[in-house]
């Protein structure tokens, strides 16, 4: 990471830290949701932007995390802290089981199949499978997180919890993009055959990207449950997946600032224009088309060339 980037990220993170002091609690809640959606979008970007797989069912993993926490807490009485490992592992397992048979499909076919998975997932939630998902209304009254006697019940505490998870996500993604597995994702995305022929196990890394992104989305799901003390199928339906998909492409695939900007644009901006009610989504559609025409690679496109300095200096 060069100095310029460190300064940028420093300013961004510092703003997020001090922001709640300037906002009323409604807006702190909006910003918390923004952070949660940023985490999900960043995780979606691992599969869609970096590995280049058209996954339009990412809300599944987000939902699995959220529902794991809600169900284990409400139905089985687990403390929230104990549900977190399950809310990470279950999405990982699900992502591998779902992705393994379809990972070889070409772009659009993968997209359609993942839409299919998402619809089956939400229908199952609505139909109250195993009698534990609460049906169309979902689950209410999930307990707050308690760590060493501290209870995360205020909006502010949940905000900083979400912020902490975002920080963690940013570190993981930074580590990913400067490592062998992260580069492998770009290689197989840009030319799968050439990648195979220089020795990259493309199938393994495709599944790897699914698993890693599912883990992060699941973790975001936990924070989602804590933020609303409730989960319902509508928050994880296929329309939500479309939203995450769009955020990545509008912002800039593989670009961390791009995805964050995309989330801001697709999520916070509509909140700002709330008084214009329904018309805002119409304007939104127009904006999506215009952005794609003017900046087909997103608002803040990725820059490659992440190479160490000692390579270019004599």
């Amino acid at each position: 990471m060069n100095t310029k980037n460190i300064v940028y990220y420093g300013i961004f993170l510092f703003s997020l830290i001090i922001l709640p002091f300037f906002l009323n609690s409604d807006w702190v809640s909006v910003m918390t949701t923004f952070i949660i959606y940023s985490i999900v979008s960043l995780s979606q970007d691992i599969v869609l932007g970096r590995a280049g797989m058209f996954d339009m069912g990412h809300a599944i993993f987000f939902g699995l995390g959220a529902y794991s926490t809600a169900i284990l807490n409400m139905v089985y009485g687990w403390p929230i802290l104990a549900t977190i490992p399950i809310a990470i592992i279950l999405p990982i397992v699900a992502s591998i089981i779902l992705a393994a048979p379809i990972i070889h499909l070409r772009g659009d076919y993968l997209l359609v199949t993942t839409i299919g998975f998402n619809i089956v997932f939400t229908q199952a939630l609505k139909n109250n499978v195993f009698g534990i998902t609460g049906g169309p209304n979902g689950i209410f009254g999930v307990e707050p997180l308690k760590i060493l006697g501290f209870v995360f019940s205020s909006q502010l505490s949940i905000y900083y919890l979400a912020f902490f998870i975002l920080l963690l996500t940013l570190i993981v993604i930074h580590n990913l993009e400067t490592s062998k597995p992260g580069r492998a994702l770009h290689y197989l995305n840009l030319d799968s055959l050439a990648s195979e022929c220089i020795g990259i196990n493309t199938r393994f890394y495709r599944l790897y990207s699914f698993a890693l992104s599912a883990a992060l989305a699941g973790l975001a799901g936990v924070v989602f449950t804590l933020q609303f003390s409730a989960v319902s199928p509508g928050a994880f339906n296929f329309i939500q997946s479309v939203l995450f998909f769009t955020i990545v492409l509008v912002g800039g695939p593989s670009s961390i600032p791009g995805v964050l900007l995309g989330t801001f644009f697709m999520f916070v901006v509509p909140e700002i224009f709330r008084q214009f009610a329904e018309a805002r989504y119409l304007v939104f559609g127009v904006a999506m088309i215009l952005i794609m025409i003017w900046r087909p690679k997103g608002i803040w496109p990725v820059k490659f060339g992440r190479i160490p300095n000692y390579l270019t200096k004599e």
Binding site: F245, V250, Y281, F284, G285, M288, I289, M292
Partner: peptide, 16 residues
């Protein structure tokens, strides 16, 4: 994928 986003935008416009 840009065209896909454009299609989704158009869908949003018509629906709303």
């Amino acid at each position: 994928l840009s065209a896909v986003v454009s299609a989704l935008g158009a869908s949003m416009i018509i629906e709303n």
